[in-house]
Design a protein around this nucleic acid. Structure first.
Lengths: 192, 192
DNA sequence: GACAATGCGGAGACGGTCTCCATATATTGA
DNA sequence: TCAATATATGGAGACCGTCTCCGCATTGTC
């Protein structure tokens, strides 16, 4: 949970302590209540005032990005690994599944990330943090197209949207991982 | 916009007038702001107090169901027409497209309907109103399976979930109808 | 015209978001 | 060690949306 950030000035010791505590509590709250968890409540549970929370994290997305920071690293690793996999089709299939599972970390995550990418704000912290998701998808789709294993009339952004939508549906229905796999397979097959 | 309802007692004349006006205004507001439009604001625009709105429509879903009432009828017609179509595969494909388009009537509609079906409340007015969506999907999937044109390991509820998720994604990205068709095709193909 | 029965409005409680600034704490350098 | 300064804090409160309650108004009926 080392949510340390390379900022202009290092934070004052007490500020860093608060920052870390807030991120830790936020991760728990998001896991429990979904991405819509009350921010004032998170501040309270972290033992700080609302003002403190909002100075460190001006928007909900900023806090969400911080809470997601570590696990997003793992996803970037997966992207690197899969992009050198020999079988481009199988690599894409696995990527889709890994992504879909990842988007179930918190209830509402596909919504939050979808909004961050759809909204105009290009410098949204959540968007920045989730860049590996986009770039990974783009790269793996590119390779799959190059290998001729998926149809040409589908864009990488479509694949990203489909992954998000599958995760959204699975969350809505509280699906088992087994069911998620079934939904993912429909999309994977449909891309062929 | 004949949102008349067969109730135990006919409404008093003024009450019926208010009811109709609220539904009319609500349809506009939902179209403009999505399913999350402010209810107090709808009441205000309809020239009634919040209390009046909440007595007629105890929940947001109840109002949404009333606003959707008419167009849902058209959908039921489509279901009837398609369920006697000779080509069961083509019928299912068209149904998926019709449904997906319908779910874009209001921003947030897939969310609202998804929650109504996922939530425990079996007598939710939105759920009741949207029954044709579920039964139509079930029937068309049944016929397609019988004809052997779609894979056996997919449930009707999976198809319903996939349709909703496509509509969700299309809304998020503000997709053109053309793009929606592309996404729908991926799912249709994936079911084969 | 009078009297139920029915329906209405809007004040206000509640909970969430987010801001502002007087106060408190950490850090620095003499 | 102890100012002096830079930095960070918390919580009161403005704002907005939801939803309820109940004194008052309107309608339908005899």
């Amino acid at each position: 949970m080392g949510a340390d950030v390379a900022e202009r000035r290092p934070l004052r010791a007490d500020a860093q302590r608060n920052y870390d505590k807030i991120v830790k509590v936020a991760a728990e709250a998001f896991a429990e209540k979904g991405t819509g968890a009350s921010l004032d409540d998170i501040a309270c549970r972290a033992g700080v005032g609302p003002g403190t929370l909002y100075r460190h994290f001006p928007t909900r997305d900023a806090l969400l990005a911080a809470a997601l920071h570590d696990s997003l690293g793992e996803l970037a690793d997966a992207a690197r690994r899969l992009s050198v996999e020999a079988d481009a089709g199988a690599a894409l299939d696995e990527w889709i599944l890994v992504m879909a599972r990842h988007l179930r970390t918190y209830a509402g995550l596909p919504d939050s990330i979808g909004a961050a990418f759809a909204g105009g704000e290009a410098d949204s912290p959540l968007r920045t943090t989730c860049m590996p998701m986009q770039s990974g998808t783009r790269e793996l789709v590119r390779r799959a197209k190059e290998a001729g294993v998926i149809r040409a009339d589908v864009e990488a952004s479509d694949v990203a949207a489909l992954i998000g939508s599958i995760a959204w549906a699975a969350e809505r229905r509280n699906d088992s991982d087994e069911t998620l796999v079934r939904l993912v397979r429909v999309v994977s097959e449909g891309l062929r």
